[in-house]
Amino acid sequence: MENPVNSISSPVAIKVSNVNKTFQLSDIKTDTLKGKLFNLFVRGNSRKLKALQNINFNILEGENFGIIGRNGSGKSTLVKIMSGAYIPDEGGEIFRNGSSMLLNLGVGMSHELTARQNIYVSGSALGLKIKDIDNIMGHIIEFAELQDFVDSKIKYFSSGMIQRLSFSIAVHAKADIIFLDEVFAVGDAKFRAKAIDILEKSMIEKRTIIMVSHSLANIEKYCKRALYLKNGEMAFLGDSKTAIAMYNKDND
């Protein structure tokens, strides 16, 4: 399947080529030395689960790209591979152009650290110098509406607060690529509105956003292109309206 080339030929932000992902599922417990020794001669039932098969596509710089599919279709696995947390099976390759941040509940944050410490660690990991982080600290806190909790450990935060914080960091630290994995499921209406406002602006700022969501309305509204995953395979790549229509037809 070929990518439809955009009218403006921006550089590639992410290139996914020949990505397969197989998980080994075993019913005997062998992740301890004890378990390994006791089960040395036991052959457990181990089976392979092909989570992703033959995935190839490009995402261009500044694009808002959607990924849809049913539960277990491989969306989150694909996002984890694209963000570098998982590695694809041999032969698969991911090319990323720039810094990236995956936003999922609490990912990329330590619950043992305070909001301020998390901002420093994440900001630095995204490539900022400490003095740059000092400069944007106020904006991050303000956008996330956490003024009163800057020096509290985030383990005491609600999931919505954590989500706001990580989103705010990603936006202000200017991550080149932002992965949003079901981000809008939490967060109240007011914050959602702010976040969507940012999404719209990011299109202008040449930043790439990859959105995974069950909210088809959001995908349709904010993503021009989308990938429809079905049982770990690419069922459709292209115009998001068509992708959603196919998805709806399959699930009727």
Binding site: A85, V107, A125
Partner: peptide, 11 residues
């Protein structure tokens, strides 16, 4: 314990 840092590819 430091799993949360894996998401940052340039680290």
């Amino acid at each position: 314990t430091k799993k949360y840092l894996y998401e940052y590819t340039n680290m």
